[in-house]
Design a protein around this nucleic acid. Structure first.
Lengths: 250, 250
DNA sequence: GCAATAGTGTCTTTTAGACAATATGTT
DNA sequence: AACATATTGTCTAAAAGACACTATTGC
């Protein structure tokens, strides 16, 4: 109805968000990689209040002029900190309450990203916050984190472990080319336990999310290993988890 | 350090959110129930611009003075529309971009709730928006929805079907007391296919998320059925899905 | 007894786990 | 040949699917 549309235009012309008490809204990132045989997460040291000088997850406010959508905000932050432009990125969960930020009611969309550890250029420089990798031990990281970031991190770690149990997601922690043993190693690092070689390979092969690279081999002082790459497939979900029943879920 | 704390107090005393361009932030709800042997979802007719008169998911802005956290906002909206105070409630996903709301950059935390169809008092009255149940057909609902709510609904339906495949979640669609056949019926309605009685019962019993009610039976013109109730357990995740491999995931 | 639904048992199928056996490169 | 790691095969175990069989009530 034209009347309704005119009404709506009239309404919108008077609408001003600055008239309302609204929450702060940001995007935070949990960026995982596997380096030195350990799961690691990227943290930045805060240069400004609040929580100045403390370590935190990279993130920040949505820039409503530059960012088309939430994912654009997440990708922008990721690019600024790591230079990585095509990560595996998925939304983790939203968090929001009165107390998590001393500036007032605050909510955040937490994302989680997986990147291969090679070719990462961490952001540095006098003015930017320092970025650094930290080892994940159990469900946390050594330094105390700003805001509720310790909680967000714990939930991200849980989600990652669950996804590793029953999806093809860990391929995104590896570079372009990798062997099945390397892929298995990634699984073992994230899960914190060994997995059976035979069962693992059967599973991977029938998932069809990796493909052999023709005539490409990794050589060492032993039998060479076939090199594989990610197939052009969306994430594969297995009908059964790798271990026994998965106890905790998010 | 005391200096840092003083710095921070100083900083906060000058901080004013109204100085910044921030996105709108709301909470929306996808409320499911099973009535008349069909999966149904609760929609409200919008009384105000934008999208005045159109059907939409119940929801609205966070009230930073009344709501402690996001879940409190969701529960408040749910209570206002249905009178239900203890539903199954989980966060679905966040959505946010420049275009979903004509008032400007907008983001929403979508929640999804399951409630039994009995004892629901839908909100009515001249001033409040009309609330009504709609049948879910495939991945959508008959009326066109405001904002990007059709997309949110589709994702919620997908999530619900996936969870029904491999979790104990459907018990929340049933009243206090129910028979195993009724529970199976709920699964069949949501999944849109029949499931095997024997396999279903083995699964349910070993999950231990329902318990027999002593000496309680449902009578009819046939063999009486044992009545069960929800056990005091968190959601159980099964190691395998009910059907074959689950193809689409969220 | 009959109809109707509740509840159980048996066999098959699928896929993971354990673990042994074989393959193929370097040194 | 010795070594190290890659790759495959065989048997077992766990849990779902198909389907038949038994149980118990009202009428």
């Amino acid at each position: 109805m034209s009347t309704t549309h005119q009404d709506e235009r009239e309404f919108l012309s008077h609408y001003n968000i600055h008239d309302y008490d609204v929450p702060l809204t940001s995007v935070d990132l949990v960026i995982f990689t596997v380096r030195e045989e350990v799961l690691q997460v990227l943290l930045v040291r805060r240069g400004e209040h609040p929580f100045k000088e403390m370590w935190s997850l990279p993130g920040g406010f949505i820039d409503i002029h530059r960012d088309q959508d939430l994912e654009a905000t997440a990708l922008r932050k990721l690019r600024e900190k790591t230079g990585v432009v095509t990560p595996y990125l998925e939304q983790l969960q939203g968090f929001g309450n009165k107390t998590r930020d001393p500036r007032g009611w605050s909510s955040t969309f937490a994302y989680f990203a997986l990147i291969p550890s090679e070719h990462i250029e961490l952001a540095h420089g006098a003015n930017t916050e320092a970025a650094q990798w930290f080892r994940v031990e159990e469900n946390s990281v050594q330094p105390e984190l700003a805001f509720d970031h310790a909680q967000i991190l714990a939930i991200a770690i849980l989600r990652l472990r669950n996804k590793v149990e029953y999806t093809s997601l860990p391929v995104h922690l590896l570079p372009e080319q990798f062997t099945l043993s390397e892929l298995q190693g990634i699984h073992e690092v994230v899960l914190g336990r060994t997995v059976d070689k035979s069962a693992f390979r059967k599973r991977i092969k029938e998932g069809n999310f990796v493909e052999e690279i023709p005539d490409a081999w990794r050589y060492g002082s032993n039998r060479p290993a076939k090199l594989y790459r990610r197939a052009n497939q969306p994430t594969v979900y297995f009908n059964r988890a790798m271990g026994g029943r998965v106890e905790e879920k998010d």
